[in-house]
Design a protein around this nucleic acid. Structure first.
Length: 972
RNA sequence: GCGGGUGUGGCGGAAUUGGUAGACGCGCUAGACUUAGGAUCUAGUGCCGUAAGGCGUGGGGGUUCGAGUCCCUCCACCCGCACCA
């Protein structure tokens, strides 16, 4: 009987599908996705008759792991905006592509021998499939990958432009290098307005003209925006490559944990530091979050001050020190050099030699991390040498200490212990004198209000005035000069790797560099089958002799470009992705200009976003793009977290291993237990507080982690061992109910809690998945994925669908709707429009829910209400919208319909229900016509029974009427 | 240490300019329909209290007729930077 009934229900349900009554998302979604692709619904044209809108998602690296539910969050948000803008009459550019060069594919190749191009292609295909499944409106015809020679040809081209430009400090923009060479041949390099990070050797015009090509090349390297020089890099001998700073953790490589050392190597770099000031200033006009701007400002790290020159006793050499507080110059009582400072050797006296050498040796052996770790410990050595105070002429002892960093400022500090915390610490530790140079006796906290003392001609001045005066003095007497410094370092560009863009440079027999000509591009990566690093810190390419060695004794550069080379300008290529003549046509660039909305995670706060801004500014300088900034507005989506599930394992017994229920662990004392991660798939009620392991879950767990096969799993109801559950004494339990420990944390493969969007979509449908991701909370906040919550959205979509059905048939009536229905619709239009504009997608979803609940209640089936609602929801749930739109009798795509406008006339009310408060507490409600005057309302409120009751025995002092809002009665 | 952000029911979160705190959803409770319910529908659901009422947006103070929202102060958590001269 049971069986027959069950089958009947099943049959009836499937029958309902046939007549399209029940909402069954998957077939609908597949149908429309196919149709969109066939009809090119989302093809973007460069059409100057329409306003444009460029929405962009941050370039994904297609990893082998595929997407988890956190990745699409930002993509869905940008998809909604892109669809909304299309409905609003914009020509929308919403592209997607792949940042496809990079280390993971190469590491995989080293391990497996699979060529990176193959594994990358497979990963891209998988990404594309997963993305398509979510129904995005990407114009796939514009997609590309950075490893495609048609793309990287232009990555190489941009590099060559940087190689052949310098930065003019007069006009504050990049200029062709040939102009600089002209200047050199006319007047040498002494006064050229050209940015150079190092202090290049000075040469005259005739010296320049007599230089051989090699010497000229070397000299020009000091000015090129892409240049080659020796830098101290993180070299990892084990991996045979240079690592970026963020790839090094605690002196070891992030991958593999191999030791990393500082090694001088000849490397290509980009002179991003020339752009520091512009990168800093132009942040001002960007619609980015304040916190992101601050991160960028910190990174650029501008400090304004002066360099002061100190002469050294018994030496011709001078010490330059940078300070932000030259006004405290009279408070200098000692100097501190970085241990690596080149002058240390010269000034150290023989009696101090041994101590100094030991200290330097110790400092050199520590990594940057380790040096920073002992911030609290003061250490240092006296060199025995003295400098002269540039004004008073007093002798000042010179110390060395590792709190002074060689690569910041000049590597030398004029120590003012009175006004600098670290100098003060150092002085008191080594008993060095402290001279107060500001009168702080007033107890005032504002530094700018102090008056200068013990400072000769500065006495009596406040800080800003003293600063001005001392800088004037320093410059006039040529002791020093005002100076601005930045922390921002030039970007090291060389990678000793295979899977990256070849650097399009060749060297002649003498080592003189030359860039490839435009018609020699792209310089394609040769195919190789051995991906191990080359010898002597060179890339695998160095072994490909037939590629490296060229006729005429020329040799190719064998290093490749870093990941940011391809990802720093990709947003421009989408404007015109198939152009073979230029990276994008002027017409396309003039039309699309910049990205109007950029969506991505905070992990790119400095790296990608800084490099892309730099590239863009450079291209702007050379007249290739019309805008100074690439990304007008930026939204950082939050992370979607997962619940990390673990089991309590008893530390006191090992044989057999004993796992216990969380309730037991708490009773016995948590200190006796360690936590063992358990795969989220094994847990019942995943995500809920009382998630647990059933007998089935225990079986999965022991099958997954065989070392626990013999373990016992104890919960209050009984014990499970080797698949058998034995109830405890007096227990009626029939199965394991082992509560797990659950905590919110990162969703990651290593935590075994990854939720795959494909599975969610399979169960609930794409539209539901999209809406639920939005419904979770504000886009910028991190929040945990709640497996149960999605039911609510699923239920809502079914109800929404059912608005369009009556007695199992699609049903929309053409009769004039009642005002009530229209009010619901227009209220919803108003709210949704406002909330999309402010990127508040979670509240949009709730407006749709409210709307659906209300229309259901009043049983509204009017076309005039239900059709605009389809368009309104289309950006959020495009598939269900298309299906209902076509069922309503339309043959065109809903995606191209104008977005509904709300009619303020419909929302206008005749009367308003006022909350009436007495002394700020709401006590009753009263309805008044919207036209009612304040006086009318006031007198009616006075007569109100409830108000009378609350003012009994007291007098009404005031009645505040806020029109159409509320009434407050003030009673004393 | 510095900078930024966030603190609202059992949970995710609403509240655009100071104006009915807790929309919407989850969860929970009760009921209806059901052989059944992890389906669906209806009602309820901040806390205390039988009620009247009181208390409530991290704590304390202030401005205001009125404060989640503004000001001061303290606390907690998260993120970023960190000897930057």
């Amino acid at each position: 009987m049971d069986l027959i009934c069950g089958n009947f229900v099943k049959f009836a349900t499937s029958f309902k599908f046939l007549i399209n009554m029940e909402y069954n998302p998957r077939p609908i979604e597949a149908k429309w996705q196919k149709k969109w692709e066939q009809e090119g619904t989302y093809r973007t044209k460069t059409d100057p008759s329409k306003p444009k809108f460029y929405v962009l998602d941050m370039f994904p690296y297609p990893s082998g792991a595929g997407l988890h539910v956190g990745h699409p969050l930002g993509y869905i948000a940008s998809d909604i905006i892109s669809r909304y803008k299309r409905h609003s009459g914009y020509q929308v550019l919403h592209p997607m592509g792949y940042d496809a060069f990079g280390l993971p594919a190469e590491q995989y190749a080293v391990q497996t021998g699979v060529h990176p191009s193959q594994s990358t292609k497979e990963n891209i295909d998988r990404y594309r499939e997963q993305l398509s499944n979510i129904g995005f409106d990407y114009d796939w015809s514009r997609s590309f990958a950075t490893c495609d020679p048609k793309y990287y040809r232009w990555t190489q081209w941009i590099f060559i432009q940087m190689y052949s430009h310098y930065y003019c400090t007069e006009t504050q923009r990049a200029k062709p290098l040939s102009e600089l060479e002209n200047l050199f041949s006319k007047s040498g390099n002494r006064d050229v307005p050209a940015f150079s990070g190092q202090d290049p050797e000075v040469f005259s015009a005739s010296e320049w003209n007599e230089m051989n090509p090699y010497e000229k090349d070397q000299a020009l390297m000091n000015y090129r925006l892409a240049y080659r020089k020796t830098s101290h890099v993180n070299w990892c001998p084990e991996l045979g490559t240079v690592l970026a700073n963020d790839e090094v953790k605690d002196g070891r490589s992030e991958r593999g944990g191999y030791p990393v050392e500082k090694k001088p190597m000849v490397q290509w770099s980009l002179r991003i530091s020339a752009y520091s000031e512009r990168l800093l200033n132009d942040l001002e006009g960007l619609d980015w979050s304040e916190s992101l701007k601050i991160v960028q400002r910190n990174w650029i790290g501008k400090s304004t001050g002066a360099t002061v020159c100190f002469s050294v006793k018994l030496s011709e050499r001078k010490i330059e020190a940078f300070t932000t507080r030259p006004d405290t110059l009279f408070g200098v009582t000692f100097m501190v050099l970085a241990p690596e400072h080149p002058l240390v050797d010269e000034i150290t006296t023989s009696d101090r030699q041994k101590a100094v050498n030991e200290y330097r040796k110790k400092a050199a052996s520590l990594s940057d991390r380790e040096r920073q770790a002992n911030v609290d410990q003061v250490s240092g050595e006296f060199t025995g040498g003295y400098a002269f105070h540039p004004i008073t002429g007093e002798e000042i002892p010179i110390w060395i200490s590792d709190y002074v960093l060689m690569d910041y400022g000049t590597g030398a500090v004029m120590a003012v212990p009175s006004d600098d915390e670290r100098d003060r610490k150092f002085a008191s530790h080594f008993n060095l004198p402290i001279t107060e140079v500001y009168d702080k006796s007033s107890g005032e906290n504002d530094v700018n209000k102090y008056k200068s003392i013990h400072s000769d001609f500065l006495n009596g001045l406040n800080v800003p005035d003293a600063l001005k005066k001392i800088i004037d003095y320093l410059e006039q007497s040529k002791i020093g000069k005002a100076e601005v410094r930045y922390k921002l370092r030039d970007a090291i560009f060389s990678r000793q790797r295979y899977w990256g863009e070849p650097i399009p440079i060749i060297y002649d027999r003498d080592g003189v560099s030359r860039a490839l000509k435009e018609d020699e591009l792209p310089l394609e990566l040769p195919t190789i089958d051995d991906f191990k690093p080359g010898s002597d810190g060179r890339s695998p390419l160095s072994r490909v002799k037939e590629w490296v060695e060229l006729p005429g004794g020329y040799r190719r550069e064998t290093d490749t470009m870093p990941g940011f080379a391809g990802s720093s300008w990709y947003f421009l290529r989408y404007m015109d992705p198939h152009n073979e003549e230029e990276f994008a046509s002027e017409e396309a660039i003039q039309y699309w200009r910049e990205v109007d909305l950029y969506v991505g995670g905070t992990e790119h706060a400095v790296g990608h976003l800084m490099y892309a801004r730099f590239y863009h500014k450079f291209l702007n300088d050379i007249g290739k793009v019309p805008t100074a900034e690439p990304f007008k507005k930026l939204i950082n989506q939050g992370m979607i977290q997962g619940v990390i599930e673990s089991l309590y394992m008893d530390k006191r017994t090992a044989d057999p291993v004993r796992f216990v229920c969380a309730s037991l662990a708490e009773k016995e004392g948590l200190e006796h237990f360690s936590k063992v991660l358990v795969h989220a798939d094994f847990v019942d009620n995943y995500g809920a507080e009382d998630s647990y392991l059933s007998g089935e879950g225990v079986k999965k767990f022991t099958g997954w982690n065989k070392s626990f096969e013999g373990a016992i799993f104890e919960c209050p109801g009984g014990v499970t061992n080797r698949g058998k559950f034995t109830p405890g004494e007096g227990s009626t339990a029939t199965d394991s109910h082992l509560l797990t420990h659950s905590e919110v944390g990162k969703m990651s493969k290593s935590k075994y809690n990854v939720i795959n969007p494909d599975e969610v979509i399979e169960e609930y449908g794409t539209d539901c998945f999209r809406m639920y991701e939005m419904f979770l909370g504000p886009i910028e906040q991190s929040k945990p994925w709640d497996t149960l919550g999605i039911e609510g959205v699923s239920k809502f979509l079914r109800r929404f669908w059912n608005l369009y059905f009556k007695e199992e048939q699609f049903y929309i009536e053409d009769a004039k709707p009642e005002k009530e229905c229209l009010v619901v619709l227009h209220q919803t239009i108003k709210r949704v429009r406002e909330d999309i504009e402010r990127f508040s997608f979670n509240t949009c979803v709730s407006h749709f829910m409210v709307c659906t609940n209300e229309l259901r209640k009043i049983n509204c089936h009017h076309r005039e209400v239900l059709e605009p609602l389809i368009v309104l929801i289309a950006p959020f749930a495009p598939h269900i919208a298309e299906e209902l739109w076509s069922k309503a009798g339309h043959t065109n795509s809903v995606a191209l319909q104008p977005y509904p406008e709300f009619d303020p006339g419909i929302l206008k009310k005749d009367s308003v229900v006022y909350p009436v408060a007495v002394n700020g507490k709401k006590r009753t409600e009263m309805e008044f016509a919207t036209s009612a005057s304040k006086d009318e309302i006031e007198s009616a409120v006075r007569d109100n029974e409830v108000v009378k009751k609350w003012s009994e025995g007291k007098s009404i002092k005031r009645i505040i009427v806020v029109p159409n809002k509320m009434v407050n009665v003030v009673v004393v």
